[in-house]
């Protein structure tokens, strides 16, 4: 069944059956994780989580497979990273409008902790609280355990059709137009935006969705890649194989600063020539780059 319009989905909120938590060890783990989430967030977070709406069926999942109960448990470690490891600071989060929006951010840090942190910020700081949907790589559904995990926490394969559907339902999407080009770049290119894809602009024009530029400052230093071992990556089928001082690209405890800019609205046709779309994309890219430059300049230290 297709997603219904968001307003309707709230009014027809179906009766919630007692969520059948998996029994045994897994169920206990999930219970403990849920408790951990609430411990970290306190009363405030509990109230926020209660405000989340997803058009659930009688088994507690939305049409895309998002399971709110599961998500509440699964965010616990991310929440811990948010508060204690990266000590995320947000600025301008009030710019994120309620309803459909595209968050366009720079991508860096070898492993996508930046996506995770933006997602958590949407949950614990944005108004209204929401589950932000990242458009995941097309090979994610082929990875065991990763595939269902992403689906249950609301992350969807980034096909244009999926994105259109989610925007039409009033959801917030997170897009990294640089893709792995940005994520896996080496350290000497830090805070220099790589090529932007055009897909997000087509989407924004077609769905008339506002674009919120986001600059993530800090993630570049979490796992500086000195060298990209391209030959080995090719053999292993990875997009790249960065070599970091920590060998495995685990993140250093850098301080994250998320800067949200004022929403940008574009008019025009999604079927315009590439050159026209490129002009608009450049505008967004320039805005993100400007926010990045300012953010890097303003900070006094990388780790604090």
């Amino acid at each position: 069944m297709a997603l219904r319009a968001p307003v309707e989905s709230q009014s027809t909120a179906m009766v919630r059956f007692d969520p059948e938590r998996p029994k045994g060890l897994l169920g206990r783990l999930r219970g403990a994780m849920e408790k951990w989430t609430l411990q970290q967030g306190g009363k405030d977070l509990e109230a926020r989580l209660a405000r989340l709406v997803a058009p659930q069926n009688e088994y507690g999942v939305d049409p895309f497979g998002l399971d709110l109960e599961f998500t509440k448990a699964a965010v616990a470690p991310a929440l811990w990273l948010y508060k204690n490891w990266f000590r995320v600071e947000t600025r301008g989060i009030e710019h994120v409008p309620a309803g459909r929006a595209l968050l366009i951010a720079n991508h860096s840090g070898q492993l996508p902790f930046d996506a995770l942190m933006i997602g958590i910020s949407m949950l614990v700081e944005a108004e209204p609280p929401r589950i932000c949907r990242a458009m995941v790589e097309r090979w994610a559904p082929t990875l065991p355990f990763v595939a269902p995990f992403f689906a249950r926490i609301g992350q969807v394969v980034g096909t244009p059709e999926n994105a259109r559907r989610l925007l039409a339902a009033g959801e917030t999407l997170m897009v990294f137009p640089e893709g792995t080009r940005g994520l896996n770049k080496t350290f000497e290119k830090k805070y220099q935006l790589q090529d932007f894809g055009l897909g997000f602009m087509r989407l924004a024009l077609e769905m008339q969705a506002p674009i919120v530029p986001v600059a993530v400052v800090g993630a570049e230093e979490q796992a500086p890649a000195l060298w990209d071992f391209k030959a080995a990556a090719k053999i292993l089928g990875f997009p790249s194989l960065p070599v970091t001082p920590t060998v495995f690209p685990l993140p250093l405890p850098v301080k994250y600063r998320l800067h949200f800019g004022a929403p940008m609205k574009f008019t025009g046709s999604a079927d315009d020539e590439e050159a026209e779309l490129e002009r608009k994309v450049k505008e967004v890219k320039a805005r993100v780059q400007g926010m990045l430059n300012r953010g890097v300049e303003e900070r006094k230290a990388i780790f604090f």
């Binding site: 297709a2 997603l3 049409p63 097309r138 394969v157 096909t159 999926n162």
Partner: peptide, 9 residues
Amino acid sequence: RPDNDNFLT
């Protein structure tokens, strides 16, 4: 298929 849309038309 892994790259299917969630709701094929």
